[in-house]
Amino acid sequence: MVSGKDTLAFNTEPFIKIRKDLHQIPELGFQEVKTQRYLLNYIEELPNKDWLEWKTWRTGILVRLGGSSPTRTIGYRTDIDGLPIEEETALPFISEHPGMMHACGHDLHMSIALGVLTYFSGHQPKDNLLFVFQPAEEGPGGAKPMLESEEFKSWKPDRMVALHIAPELPVGTVGTKTGFLFANTSELFIDLKGKGGHAAYPHQANDMVIAASYLVTQLQTIVSRNVSPLDSAVVTIGKIAGGTKQNIIAENARIEGTIRTLTIDSMHLVKERIEGMVKGIESSFDCELSIDYGANYCQVFNSEAETSAFIDFVKELDYVKFFESEKAMTGEDFGYFLEEIPGFMFWLGVGSEHGLHSSKLNPNEDAIDCAIRLLIDYVKGA
């Protein structure tokens, strides 16, 4: 067993305060101006700049540490954006931005990344390290354009690693698996335009509340009647909006949802069926519909060799417990990095009563120390 004694002397307490600071300033995708400035202020104060350099990309940051005798570059990605959720935790460091919250743990993700970066800024690693502070994971998707940027390409790593907090797992637990981890995902926005009118004269109008209701009901048959029972898919409608007043027939309506599939072929199938149903609604209700698929994320598929080696490494540690993960229909744009670069994502237990994207998410901050030690030991032994 490996005790991680070498990292015990490294003080991780400051990164709990950093987490609290970042928790108070959540910002939406590609709007992370305060967050980027906070991170840059910290990075600029790090020691040993002779092997440390950085550059920005939009609202993100890339930080490179040159190794003492490098044979490769290990990349570590953290997401930095928040969600459009009104926080309901009553924490003393509650979000200062109304209607926005770090409800997916990206504040912890950043704090952990800064902890690992700080350690290696004072202890030069053998191999090169690249820390990727990526914007817009929650949408519209920052991984793909960042991956394609000249800034990233010039420092492109040979391996990519990332973590995500898992509220349902206790602190001290790490979970992952080889192969498929997270689903292919797509946003779904459908706008309906008909003809408004007086509630007393429905025959003179085309009611988009009714049309939207029919469409939502039909969409729920796609998975049960078009996707193979041996496959898996999800079509969830999370929001419907339409009309202006109780006695006015709605001229417009909007449906918002998400699609999750295990395979790209199933994603294409689901979208084909949605488009067919939309045409049917247009004909039935004499109206116009438009579809926007918004952000599309590919699956997170962990590389066999790199993931297996990480699992073996975790199992030898005495301060964490390994958990064999199952496939999940969660979406993560880290999958775009893994399409081009071998690597993996893993779950980090944070023991919260409330789950991801909850307005009451409250992760146990002890997980920060656990993750920093784990990643330092992993990089040193990789």
Rank of each mutant, 00 (worst) to 15 (best):
M101S: 14
K321P: 01
R273A: 00
F180P: 10
P170Q: 12
E187D: 15
E53I: 03
S303W: 06
E32G: 03
A241I: 13
L361K: 05
E275S: 09
I368K: 08
H102G: 03
V300P: 05
N41W: 06
K193L: 13
K279L: 09
L375T: 00
I210M: 15
S232F: 00
A183L: 09
I368F: 13
Q134K: 05
A212G: 14
F10H: 14
G335K: 01
L8H: 13
E324V: 01
Q124R: 15
T12K: 04
L22E: 04
N252Q: 15
T56E: 13
V132E: 03
N226Y: 15
Y76E: 00
F152T: 02
V161Y: 08
T217M: 13
D377F: 02
V116K: 02
P342Q: 07
T176V: 06
T221L: 06
L40I: 11
Q31Y: 08
Q220E: 12
E326N: 13
L338I: 06
I18Q: 11
V63Q: 08
E282C: 06
E326T: 12
V320M: 11
H357G: 07
Y336R: 06
S3L: 15
Q218H: 10
L192K: 04
N128Q: 12
A166H: 07
I341V: 09
E365R: 09
A162E: 01
L361W: 10
W155P: 00
H357V: 08
M101E: 02
I43D: 06
T12L: 06
V223I: 15
V174I: 15
M100F: 03
T244F: 03
I94W: 00
I259L: 15
I190W: 08
A113S: 14
I264S: 13
A253F: 14
K153D: 09
T221K: 10
K156M: 12
Q31C: 11
K153S: 10
L117C: 07
S303C: 05
E275A: 10
I259A: 04
P363S: 09
E275W: 00
A250C: 09
L338M: 09
R159Q: 11
L114N: 04
N48P: 02
A212M: 12
T12S: 15
D377P: 03
P170W: 03
H164Y: 10
E304N: 11
D231W: 08
I264W: 12
G196N: 12
P342V: 04
E96T: 12
M110P: 05
W57R: 02
T59L: 04
H268K: 14
E87I: 01
V314P: 03
E251H: 06
L289E: 02
